[in-house]
Amino acid sequence: MSSVPMSHILFVSTALFFIGMYGLFTRRNMITMLMAIELILNSVNINFVVFNKYLYPDKLDGIFFTIFIITIAAAEAAVAIAIIINLYRSHRSIDVENASEMKW
């Protein structure tokens, strides 16, 4: 059953991490940036689950951590979207280039 080697899954999660990072730096839409951050957090989730399943199957630390990360990511997204909505009311746009009143 467990025929997939651990390195393959770790490759996926690391790729996901850097895709998220790339998306955060290149995308100019606030909602898309938020999605990129979710990608980073999900790559961490995969890491935790894989390490727990393959290396330390008798303990549950990694699984617990994953559940907490999912919960907190939801809270973070809720606050971030509330802030973006409020920003949209004053700026009439959710493009980060328009939110640049303060620089240097």
Binding site: V44, E76, H91, A99
Partner: peptide, 29 residues
């Protein structure tokens, strides 16, 4: 306007930094 812009910058950078921190914690684990 400035207040919401500040809040947006704050939540994005803190979410990104906790992402980095978490990736570090997962490798440490």
């Amino acid at each position: 306007r400035r207040s919401s812009e500040a809040a947006f910058k704050m939540i994005m950078s803190s979410a990104f930094s906790s992402g980095l921190l978490l990736f570090g914690i997962s490798l440490l684990y």
